[in-house]
Each structure stands twice: as structure tokens, then as C-alpha cells.
Design a protein around this nucleic acid. Structure first.
Lengths: 346, 346
DNA sequence: CTGAAAGCGCTAACAA
DNA sequence: TTGTTAGCGCTTTCAG
């Protein structure tokens, strides 16, 4: 029925528990015969050590926690996928928690994790989080923490990011290089820093290519929704009928734009090119398929775990935490909502 | 720095650890004054009990595991979302693991979970799993297990399911009621039982409404992909130009169909109606938006945890496990890829 | 009302 | 080569 313990094995074999323990771990100072006897009996009874008892002694759980704003989200679930798979390779299990973009929840969930004595935490900040003492406290108490995607530079710890500004620059640049002369940008609520970075990337690209920046070409989607894109597209074309490119800061909005333009019989990409951001699953299923920026979630998760692992090891060895920042490269996924790149004029 | 223990508190206060322990748990036989002194000191030092030590004694971790075929999947991540939120309400944390649709991985991951001494397991079977002894063993050893979505009736334990057959019946019925006379069905690989159930639902609906079942109207998507739908749609219309309805067993395939028909200038829903299955996020963003079957993932996760919790409690109280099956209702989400329901002829 | 003691299962320093 | 012992932090008799 239930699991067998060291003590029980030792009783059966008439030896001490410490001998059994050592035999199972192949200590060199144990008689080969006893080793074999022990190991066979253990196998026969399907012995596995009691994880709490081990943890209680070793101060290690081999469990880490990951806290994201929302789990039901292609980007974040990809990150978790990457983290879980990488963790498993190294013998770690992963507890998943969500902050639902709430500062209070973030604090609460973090506390749950800390109280469970897990070994380390991977964290993507909620959009509402503007104070960071709750995180600094955890780190100061010796918990290894890695920040990813939604990060702040105000916390000194390892981080995994994508360079949203650079990525947005590429997106805008792609529109420019494919012949767009008047490009609108749909941005989002101010808070997640990523949104602002994307806006900055757009702006810098215009400057770099000597195109005028026009404030009236900036539109704001409040809730990042498909519906927002749909409505804003109508507004954009009404206010600026000569627009020939739209860069939306996130795919669902871009897809909303796409749908509206099609319904309004505006040719995409012939008259207006559209580029999104994030490479959501559905972006390749639209017609025309959406050109977008790929954010490699899986790799972010993988790298974040690797950084965490490094600090886990540092902690065990008494070394100080590192706080390097790893940047994961993004790429433009060219599909059909933008025009073909024009051959350079010779 | 690190966490304070009962022993340290007791030393500071010059009382015994057992008194401290009881004081913190508000035992009735402790002097009110000592209680207050203890509780205040504990609060001051931010005392939280050591979770392993507690687990070691109580044989409970307050952690459960959930194993799904794939995490990066709207349906499964919704289930996990529901499970995590419900678990949290009851003081449980959730370890998430994936089988990647591999039988071997399923066994391996289950073992990881069991070895961690977690309190219970929520499991959705991999498509490759056709033997169930690994699961029966776990249950027989006393681990509460709840199966959801991808289940088998060959295991005696609580289950949460949706009735795929009934749902597919409704889907087909909806096409019939909106005037379709010749309906093709795109099904998938044989294994997940859900696929067959959907096919059965389609067939039974035809029979119920006295429509001929025609084997040549059944098409198979091998990899459930958007691209498959795209290609099959071409094939279907070539072989059966008079088709006026297509029921695809999963949304991405339906969306592929939609895209192809549009490209081929076939009017949806005027000439051909399309209905999907699953209500993936993107299905409302297509144009026309896709009519589909909603599979309420969140509720499945929630209910599965509740069943697990019930068995967790039964176990604690020495009662036998229950093995009830909860069926979560689905619904037809009517959008624009099917025609309006015709008024009944009076 | 309080404390001593035992024990959950495992490990490791030390003794034999 | 093996065993003894102590202890990780907590809870719960049971005795005082």
C-alpha cells in the first residue's frame, strides 16, 4: 500500500537506517554486498525517499514558482512551457500562479510561494505594480528571483527581456521599407513599460528615416482588444484617409484593424499595410495573414529558468546572486498584410 | 534575515515550543496573556511555519499536481486557470506538468508528482495512452486522482467531462436548422475519444433529422492545423461542389476552411455554412466570425479541483474515494459563419 | 495553564 | 565497514 521508509528497510534487513541511506546513495564506505542487498530490497518495494523529510534537512524543495499576470495567454503560456520543460531537465517542478494584473494579488501570491519554502521564483510584474519593496524584501531574505518580460530596472536581480523598442523599430522600419509614407500607430495604456517602448521604437524609426512624427497619428487602445482595433481602424481612416500603414502594438488590435479595413473595402496591403506585434497564434490565420513581430516566449521561459538555476547554485555555494540581463532577440514575421520589400533602386 | 522558528520564539519568551505552537493556533487551554505575547512576537518577526516540517508531520503538502497534454493551448490553459484559482481559494498550490501527448512522458511526470508527495493529481490523458495500469497503481496506493476532458471509463475515479457527442450533435443540428442540406464533416485522428464522439454526434444528428449519411463527406485532418483545414476545404469543394455546410471538429481547422472558401470566392454563410468546435479565442476575430461550440475550460478546471478536494477530504477522514462523473454543459456560440435560424413554418 | 518528550523520515558527523 | 546519535521544525499526547 503506502510508501516504504528507510527505517522499515533497515528493520527487514536488520541493519541501521544510516547504512541503508548510504547504501542507496552508493557511498564508497559501504560493503558491496550490503549495498546490493539494500538496493534490491528498495527496488522491490519501490522505495522513494520522502521528499519533505529530505527538504527539511537540505533546505531545498526542488520546486520553483512562476508568477505571471495571466496564464490564459499565448505569450505567457509559452513562457511557462519553456520554464517547465527546462526546469524538469534539471529536476525541478514548477508551481504556477497568476496575479491577474493586480498589485495586491501579486503580493499575496508571492507570499504563498515564499511561505512554501520553494527554492526560487520567476516573476513577470503586474501592470499595476509600481512599488517594488515586496520584491526587494523577498530577495533580501535570500530568495533567488528572476524577472522576465514585465520587468523593472529598479530591482537588482537577473532579468530576461525582449527589447520592445528595438522590435518596434523593426516593425516600423519594415513598413517604411515596403513603401509606407504615412504610418499610424496604435498604442496602449501607459503602464506596461513595454507599450511605451514600442511607441518609442515607432518614433525613433520615423526619425531615423526622416519622416515627420505627427501626434494625431497616435491612437490608443484601452483594453488591447480585437474590438478596439476594429473601432479605431474606422476612426483612423475617417480622420486620415491617406494613411498607408498602421502599426498596432499588439496582434489582437491589429487583427481588429484588419477586419474593419476589409469590411470597409480598403485593400490590405495594397492601400494600407498593417503590422502587429507578438505573433499570436491566430495572426497567421487571418486573411491576409498578419505581418507581425515574433516574441519568442518559449525561449524567454527557458532562459529565465537557466538564470534562476544559476542563482540557485550560487546560493548553495554561498556566492552572491548575479544580476545579469539576458535579451532575447525578436524578428519580423513577414506575411501578407504588408507589401513585398521593394528592390533597392540601383 | 532568514525565517524565525518556533524554537527561537520560545527561547526569547522563555517558554516551551509546545506552548508557542498552541498559542499561535489559539488553543483554548493557553493563558490569554501568553497568547498575546507570543502572537505579537510572531507578528513582529514575521513568523510563518516551516512548510516541510508541517508536511512531514501532517502528511499533507497542500500542493496538487495537474498534468495536461499541452499547456500552450487555449482550452487547457483555461482549465489550468480554473484549477489554480479554485485551488488557491482552498489553500492549495498547483504544480503544472505536460505529457506532450506521450505515454512515456505521462508515466514519468506522474512519477515525479507522486514522489513529491503531493496531495492529489488532476490528469488529462495523452492521446497515446491506451494502457492505464500506471494510473490505477497510483490510485491504489492512495493518491486521489481526478480525470478531466481526455478520460477513459476504464479507470474508476472521479471525472469531469463535456459530452462531445451531444455537443457535436448540437453543432450539426444548428447547421440543419439553418437550412443546410448537404453537410461535410472534418474529423481528426482516431485516438482521442473526443474526436470519435464528435463524429458520432454528427452522424446521429443526420439520422435524427432523416438526412442521408454519406461516407465520402467525411474528411480527416491529420494534425488539427489551420493549414489542414485550408487544404481540405479545397478538396471538399472540388469533390462536392454542392456542399452547403461544413462541421469541423476543431476551430483551427474550421478557420482554415473559412480562409480557403473566402479565397475561392465562395460566400460564407450564404453558399456554405461553417461551424467549428472549441471556441478558441481567435474564432470570434475571423470575418465572418466563426460559429462554434463553446467548451468551458475554466469550469472544467474548477469542477475538477472541487472533485479532487472532495476526495482529499474523504481521504483525510478515512472514507473511500468517490468516483462520480460531472458533465459540464457546452453551448453553440452563434456568429456569422452560419445562417440565421429560419422561422419555423407554421 | 504549561512543558517534556516523542516522532514524522532522512542525513551526516562521529564513534566503534 | 557499520551503527549511534543528534537534529532539521513542527505537533500532540500526556504528565505536571
Amino acid at each position: 500500500m503506502s510508501k516504504i521508509t528507510l527505517k522499515e528497510i533497515s528493520k527487514i534487513l536488520g541493519i541501521s537506517t544510516s547504512t541503508v541511506s548510504k547504501a542507496l546513495k552508493n557511498y564508497s564506505d559501504i560493503n558491496v554486498d550490503t549495498k546490493i542487498r539494500v538496493q534490491e530490497l528498495a527496488k522491490k518495494h519501490n522505495y522513494t525517499p520522502n521528499a519533505f523529510a529530505q527538504s527539511l534537512r537540505s533546505r531545498e524543495t526542488k520546486i520553483i514558482g512562476i508568477l505571471v499576470p495571466e496564464l490564459v495567454h499565448h505569450f505567457f503560456s509559452s513562457i511557462i512551457d519553456g520554464a517547465i520543460n527546462e526546469a524538469e531537465k534539471h529536476g525541478y517542478l514548477v508551481i504556477v500562479l497568476q496575479s491577474h494584473e493586480s498589485y495586491e494579488d501579486e503580493i499575496k501570491q508571492l507570499k504563498l510561494l515564499v511561505d512554501k519554502n520553494i527554492d526560487g521564483i520567476m516573476l513577470s510584474l503586474s501592470d499595476k505594480t509600481v512599488k517594488y519593496d515586496h520584491i526587494r524584501t523577498i530577495i533580501n531574505e535570500g530568495m533567488p528571483v528572476v524577472l522576465f518580460d514585465k520587468i523593472t530596472h529598479l530591482i537588482d536581480c537577473p532579468k530576461v527581456i525582449i527589447d520592445d523598442r528595438k522590435a518596434a523599430f523593426s516593425a516600423t522600419e519594415h513598413l517604411i521599407k515596403t513603401g509606407c509614407k504615412k504610418i499610424a500607430h496604435i498604442t496602449g495604456p501607459l503602464k506596461p513599460k513595454t507599450t511605451i517602448d514600442r511607441f518609442m521604437g515607432y518614433k525613433i524609426a520615423l526619425e531615423t528615416y526622416n519622416m515627420p512624427f505627427n501626434k494625431t497619428l497616435i491612437y490608443t487602445s484601452e483594453n488591447l482588444s480585437f474590438e478596439d482595433g476594429y473601432n479605431l481602424a474606422g476612426q483612423i481612416m475617417a480622420e486620415h484617409p491617406d494613411i498607408d500603414g498602421i502599426f498596432a502594438f499588439i496582434d489582437p488590435v491589429a487583427i481588429g484593424v484588419l477586419k474593419r479595413l476589409k469590411e470597409d473595402k480598403i485593400k490590405v496591403p495594397k492601400q494600407v499595410s498593417i503590422i502587429g506585434f507578438s505573433n499570436w497564434f491566430m495572426s497567421r490565420t487571418t486573411s491576409p495573414a498578419l505581418t507581425t513581430i515574433d516574441q519568442p516566449g518559449y525561449q524567454i521561459g527557458r532562459n529565465a529558468f537557466q538564470l534562476l538555476l544559476k542563482n540557485l547554485n550560487h546560493k548553495r555555494e554561498g556566492k552572491p546572486f548575479t544580476s545579469e540581463t539576458v535579451e532575447i532577440p525578436t524578428s519580423v514575421i513577414i506575411r501578407q498584410s504588408t507589401r513585398a520589400i521593394m528592390a533597392p533602386v540601383i
